[in-house]
C-alpha cells in the first residue's frame, strides 16, 4: 500500500466581509476551466454548468433589508460525502486534500451529485459545443468534458500541476502564493485566499485561524477545505 501523504493540504479562505458579489470569479472559473456556455433554456431547466456560483440571500424586509453573498465552489471536504458513494472511484480524495473528479472514469450515476450537500457538482446533461471559432478559447491545459459525466471545481488542478512540476524540477516545495486558482487570482476585493493549510505560516492558514471563520454546513461533519470568514453585515437601518 502506497503512502498517501503529501506536504500540501490545499485550502481556501473566503472573506465574506470583502466579497462584493461582483461575479468576476464566476467568469474567471468559466474561462479557466472550459466550463460550458449554457443558454437560457438550459439554465431554466436547472442545468447550469458553473463550477462556482455566488449565492445571494435576501434577509429582512424593506427598508430593513440586507443582502448576503456567498460564493460557493467545491468545498473540497476532507470527509467528502461525494467520494465514498462513487462506485468507480471517479470521485476520490487526492493526497493533497483535494476532492478529485476523474472524467474518464465517471459513468454518470450522479450519486455524488446527490450526496454533495453543497450542490456544487454539475452534470453534463448536454454535449456542449462551442460554435466556431469560439472553441479557440478552450484551454488545452484541461479537458472538455463529454456529456454524461459529473464535473466540478478542482481548485484549478491544472495550475497546481504546473507549479508542482516547476517546483519539482527545481527540487523545492511550492511557495506560498505561487499557485492560485483563477477565482482567487481575479477577485477584485481579494476576498479569496488560496494556500497550503499544512503550512501554518501560509497566508491562507493564518487567515483561517481568524475568529470570524466558519465552515459551510459545519454540522454535517464534512470538514471542508474552504473556510469562510463572517461578513460584517449591516448593523444599522436608516
Amino acid at each position: 500500500m502506497e503512502k498517501l501523504t503529501s506536504p500540501y493540504k490545499w485550502g481556501m479562505v473566503i472573506d465574506l466581509d470583502r466579497c462584493t458579489g461582483c461575479g468576476a470569479c464566476v467568469v474567471a472559473c468559466q474561462a479557466e476551466n472550459n466550463v460550458a456556455i449554457c443558454d437560457k433554456k438550459e439554465i431554466a431547466e436547472g442545468r447550469n454548468m458553473h463550477w462556482l456560483r455566488i449565492e445571494r440571500f435576501w434577509v429582512g424586509e424593506y427598508p430593513d433589508v440586507r443582502v448576503r453573498f456567498l460564493p460557493v465552489m467545491c468545498q473540497h471536504c476532507h470527509d467528502a460525502p461525494c467520494e465514498p458513494v462513487c462506485p468507480v472511484y471517479a470521485s476520490y480524495h487526492n493526497p493533497d486534500g483535494l476532492n478529485g473528479q476523474v472524467y474518464n472514469r465517471c459513468v454518470g450515476t450522479r450519486y455524488c451529485g446527490n450526496n454533495c450537500p453543497y450542490a456544487v457538482r454539475v452534470f453534463n446533461f448536454y454535449q456542449h459545443e462551442w460554435p466556431k471559432p469560439l472553441e479557440n478559447q478552450l484551454s488545452p491545459d484541461i479537458t472538455v468534458r463529454p456529456r454524461g459525466v459529473m464535473e466540478k471545481c478542482s481548485f484549478c488542478i491544472q495550475r497546481i500541476r504546473r507549479v508542482k512540476e516547476t517546483a519539482k524540477g527545481e527540487g523545492r516545495l511550492i511557495r506560498d502564493g505561487e499557485v492560485q486558482p483563477a477565482c482567487a487570482q481575479t477577485c477584485p476585493a481579494e476576498a479569496l485566499t488560496f494556500g497550503n493549510m499544512a503550512d501554518p505560516e501560509s497566508r491562507a492558514a493564518r487567515l483561517a485561524r481568524s475568529p470570524r471563520g466558519f465552515q459551510l454546513l459545519e454540522q454535517l461533519g464534512t470538514h471542508p477545505s474552504v473556510i469562510y470568514l463572517k461578513g460584517g453585515g449591516r448593523e444599522h437601518v436608516g
Binding site: 438550459e42 431547466e45 436547472g46 442545468r47 447550469n48 454518470g108 450522479r110 450519486y111 451529485g113 446527490n114 450542490a119 457538482r121 454539475v122 452534470f123 453534463n124 446533461f125 448536454y126 454535449q127 456529456r147 454524461g148
Partner: peptide, 14 residues
C-alpha cells in the same frame, strides 16, 4: 441525445 432528455437537473439528479 444525452441525459438532457430526462427531467433531471441539479439538484434532482435521481
Amino acid at each position: 441525445r444525452g441525459m438532457y432528455v430526462t427531467g433531471l437537473d441539479r439538484p434532482v439528479m435521481w
